[in-house]
């Protein structure tokens, strides 16, 4: 029997660590949605002086790689300062798990984003964040680095799948270098819309395919 998952992934999937909610958390992050198929909630307790994450818990509605990454990310974050925890990457989590299948990058990256969202939530509540920035094509491209190309497991910017991005009057237009009937066209479109739709000054996201 050969799963595409490492033993470590399966172990975390079977026995996820730090599962559940924290009552009255200092920071909470929720990433994904039932619509995109995966959802992760991360709760943190922060020591106010040292800014060390004293406790962290997660909940997952998702596939095995989502659950395993959620589990491992809590292990990585516990005991770290917010600044240190912010720097935890998907790559680190993946390495810690002995590798993840590229096609599952999307599901597992959510856990990392959940942790970051919880930290951001803490920072916002404590007045530690700068002003909101205006959405520009650069901001869009930065966000799109979190959208995975399921064929490679690398993001769609790095794999040069995005031909063009424009921002005009609250409407973002993204041109994707794929035919509209490509196997992953709908999945990528959904992912892009979800990543950009939440930007504060964006009203609509248009994803256009080249053929």
């Amino acid at each position: 029997m050969k799963f595409p998952y490492s033993e470590k992934v399966l172990e975390h999937f079977r026995n996820p660590r730090n599962v559940g909610k924290i009552e009255d958390p200092d920071g909470k992050g929720l990433e994904g949605s039932p619509a995109c198929g995966d959802m992760v909630a991360v709760y943190i307790k922060v020591e106010p002086e040292t800014k060390v994450i004293e406790d962290v818990k997660f909940e997952s509605y998702g596939c095995a790689s989502n659950i395993a990454t959620g589990s491992v990310i809590t292990e990585l974050a516990k005991g770290k300062t917010l600044e240190e925890a912010k720097k935890i990457t998907w790559k680190q989590a993946s390495e810690e798990l002995g590798g993840l299948p590229p096609i599952k990058a999307h599901c597992s990256v959510l856990a990392v984003e959940g942790l970051r969202a919880a930290i951001r939530d803490y920072e916002e509540k404590h007045g530690l964040v700068a002003e909101r920035e205006e959405t520009t094509p650069e901001v869009v491209r930065r966000r799109l680095k979190h959208v995975m190309n399921p064929l490679t497991g690398l993001d769609i910017i790095r794999t040069e799948l995005i031909l063009k991005t424009t921002v005009e009057d609250g409407v973002i237009r993204v041109v994707v270098d794929l035919p509209s009937d490509h196997q992953f066209a709908s999945a990528i479109k959904e992912d892009i819309t979800e990543k950009l739709g939440s930007l504060w000054d964006v009203e609509r996201v248009e994803v256009v395919f080249t053929a």
Binding site: G37, D38, C63, K104, H106, C107, P150, Q183, S186, A187
Partner: peptide, 11 residues
């Protein structure tokens, strides 16, 4: 019927 299970990642 989950997207995660399918080859196209579609529900």
């Amino acid at each position: 019927g989950s997207a995660c299970f399918s080859r196209s990642l579609e529900a």
